[in-house]
Design a protein around this nucleic acid. Structure first.
Lengths: 212, 212
DNA sequence: GTCTATACATCGATAGAC
DNA sequence: GTCTATCGATGTATAGAC
């Protein structure tokens, strides 16, 4: 029985990697079977269709996010700390499940046409609500600005955080937690240098055109 | 002769819209021909292949960005103003060419396997250099923070700006220029409310778990 | 410049032997 | 549980008439 589960898991993890690297549509059933080491027909003993594999990869992923977001909210911290924890949590999930993260962030078009899309969509809505709830609490208690629409802030930090999967390498010298701290600091306090009381000619330097 | 060019343009614009809406791989030659109102074989009189259509859509797009980024650099403004202008310019291009923008941001996998990828990649590198140049100038003259790696800041603001194509509707009440101002303000000064000299119990409110 | 007609590859999925 | 063998649909691209 452990054999059976292992086979299913091998198919799922192999498919997830190929989905992320080549794209959902470019990944073929035959290709997955080749990578696993069986013939394509054998996959249909474990899964009823290709889309069922996609659905299981994403459902596990979204469930993991929802569970961890719930823990962040349950901590009872303030809005700024919760926002920080959401960033940390998201980047941790992205590190633990990089393939599913990439698929979810890059293949909205394919997913929208899947039979089980409404199932995926409801999970996504719950995740979005978590962010908006934290942001709204921060605006309400005065710790966040009220001149930028909460939905706009959400979209901007959401894309910045999740799309880091496209360039960030968790095993490199710039760690996931370092990234989380920088993202939080940047989105809360900005990239402009804090003015040290008085400084002359601040920002007066010109940007020179590059030589070619 | 104007007839000829119009036909080509119609194919290009029709294809671009379908590429953006359905994805490059999901858009078929037959589908483009149907939308244009001809049979699929006729497209090969105007373009040698499907990839050639993709390439022309993206080349025009990248050339437009390069030309306008060069104008921003030529203005001779300071780093903060240049950053602002890069944001404005990028969002303007995204509004003018939404289909090409979406394709370029969402279909990196397909593009990487295209024959003419190196041609696209070099244009992308030049665009990236423009941002990094402005950021480096700001760090050098003290107007930007030096404790966040410039490349990290670039990736974060880049994704936030360009991926706004996924959710922002330029013809809605929240205009492109309003978005540009908010993005610039957010990334320069942060989402945290500016402290009005002294305020008690700032950020001490808790985020309540949502009722279900 | 568009059509008809079709070549040729590859896709997801199935049936039945082992 | 995996194999062999294959179906039917669909993909890009081509050849040649009009």
């Amino acid at each position: 029985m452990a054999e059976v589960q292992d086979r299913r898991e091998l198919i799922l993890s192999t498919a997830a990697e190929m989905f992320a690297r080549k794209g959902l549509r470019a990944t073929t059933v035959r290709g997955i079977a080749d990578a696993v080491g069986v013939l394509s027909g054998s996959l249909y003993h474990h899964f009823p269709s290709k889309d069922a594999i996609v659905d299981e990869v994403l459902t596990r992923y979204l469930d993991a996010i929802r569970a961890r977001y719930a823990m962040v909210l349950a901590s009872g911290k303030g809005p700024a700390d919760c926002l920080h924890d959401l960033v940390v949590t998201s980047l941790e999930v992205a590190e633990e499940q990089p393939h599913a993260t990439a698929v979810y962030q890059n293949e909205a078009q394919y997913l929208r046409e899947m039979p089980s899309f409404s199932h995926i969509q409801s999970a996504a809505a719950e995740i979005q609500q978590t962010w908006l709830q934290v942001i709204a609490a921060g605006v309400a208690d005065g710790s966040f600005r009220d001149d930028i629409p909460p939905r706009v802030f959400y979209r901007l930090i959401r894309d910045a955080v999740w799309l880091s999967i496209r360039w960030h390498r968790p095993d490199g010298p710039y760690s996931t937690h370092r990234l989380a701290e920088d993202v939080t600091s940047l989105f809360l306090h900005g990239f402009a240098a804090p003015a040290p009381a008085a400084r002359k000619a601040n920002g007066r330097a010109r940007v020179r055109a590059r030589k070619r």
